[in-house]
Computed example of a mutant assay.
Amino acid sequence: MFFFSQHLQLVMGMTPFQAGLAELPATIATIAVVGIVGYLLTRLGRGRAIATGLGLSALGLVGLAITEGWSTYWGMGVSLAVIGLGVGAAMTLSTDAVVSAAPAERAGAAASISETAYEFGVALGIAVLGTLHTVIYRASLTIPEHVSDLERAALDDSLATATYQLPNSPNLLAEAQHAFTFGVQSVSLIAAALLAIAAVVAIRVIPSVPETTPPTPH
Rank of each mutant, 00 (worst) to 15 (best):
Y39R: 06
R43T: 10
G45Q: 09
T52N: 02
G53T: 09
L56P: 02
G60N: 02
G63Q: 01
A65R: 03
A65E: 06
I66R: 03
T67N: 07
E68W: 00
G69K: 02
G75P: 02
M76T: 11
V78K: 05
S79C: 07
G88L: 00
A89W: 00
L93P: 02
V99L: 14
P103T: 07
E105H: 15
A109S: 10
S112Y: 09
S112Q: 06
E115Y: 06
E115H: 08
F120Y: 08
A123H: 03
A123T: 11
L124W: 02
L124F: 12
G125Y: 10
I126C: 04
G130W: 08
L132D: 12
T134W: 00
Y137A: 09
R138A: 09
A139K: 13
A139S: 15
E145D: 14
H146S: 15
H146P: 04
D149C: 03
L150E: 15
A153D: 13
A154P: 05
D156N: 13
D156H: 14
D157N: 09
A160F: 13
A160K: 13
A162V: 08
T163A: 15
T163V: 11
Y164M: 12
L166C: 08
L166P: 06
P167D: 13
P167K: 15
P170G: 11
N171D: 14
L172M: 12
